[in-house]
Design a protein around this nucleic acid. Sequence first.
DNA 1: TAACCCTATGCAACAAATTGCATATAATCA
DNA 2: TGATTATATGCAATTTGTTGCATAGGGTTA
Lengths: 177, 177
Amino acid sequence: MALAEAILVCLTERPMSGYDLAKNFDASIGFFWRASHQQIYRELGRLREKGYVVSEEVSQDGKPNRIIHTLTADGKKALRAWSKKPAKHPSLKDDMLVKFYALENMDLNALKDQLTIRMEQHQTKLSKYYRIKERYYDGQNLNLTQKGKLIALEMGIDQEIQTIQRLEDAMRKIGEL
Amino acid sequence: MALAEAILVCLTERPMSGYDLAKNFDASIGFFWRASHQQIYRELGRLREKGYVVSEEVSQDGKPNRIIHTLTADGKKALRAWSKKPAKHPSLKDDMLVKFYALENMDLNALKDQLTIRMEQHQTKLSKYYRIKERYYDGQNLNLTQKGKLIALEMGIDQEIQTIQRLEDAMRKIGEL
DNA sequence: TAACCCTATGCAACAAATTGCATATAATCA
DNA sequence: TGATTATATGCAATTTGTTGCATAGGGTTA
């Protein structure tokens, strides 16, 4: 399970609350790994039990208390150990491809609408990636951390571009049926 | 949950046992939706309860009895209804991208090895796709069912080619660090 | 002023997926 | 002859993911 590791990765940047992590999982690392706040809070409990993070309550006035989680030496070690274990390949489950596969039993017009919606979603994501790249990673003097994130981001960008192309292709093909 | 639908899709071709379905999920439809035999048997139970399939035990000599599942009219209706519902986009969880994102805390050599392994896996898959395409879908007179499967297959082919390219890119980039 | 969103945490129930185990027969390979 | 592979089905336990709800103060909008 890489949710644990994704959280640890976030905490290498700086100590964070569960809420901060949840927001991170809506952006940055969330481009590569999705998780809801409920999952994150549950996982943080486990990480604390294992001693990979330590948690400290901080009171704020007006707002509810925050619980700030900090990565421990053990947590960092666990992260490095994880980096040596083979990455399992992504699960590959796609409704849409199943629908193409079963084209004969599908409603073609509905499918075209779904294709359009999906293209728009990928386009939106792509624009977001471009904005982030320009804003944060367009300089010359990037350190290793930034270079890694840039590689991930550029893989994301290429993936979106290619996905949109494939969807356009598919749209054309079912138009020609 | 589209496992139910993926099973129904398989059963549009012909009545099958759970074992047959499990094998299908190791090939053909399994390219777009993965499932273990345990999942399939459990799901078949639910589909039977809903009346989407009927199941009939067939004795064989020597081998254990097979339970053959046949799609019902209700099942076919459910499939068509599903085709109109928006496809949710794939979950997008990738260990490898998380590892790039966290490059600073990773073991670079281990990561390169993992990249290589993954490239080989995608290459294997691509070859398999090409063989299937040549063998089953290379003729001129394809019916709608076949055309749908060909579209799915070609999307799979493009996806693999592009994934391999991206991995090569990433490999080059971490080599230049 | 009421309705809604943001911050902040978390429980509980359920659904889905994974892992490990169990059973039973037949054919094939070393 | 013993080991492995293939056929065929399934339970149980655990982990992971989703959905709904609860609490609670503060700001913003209609």
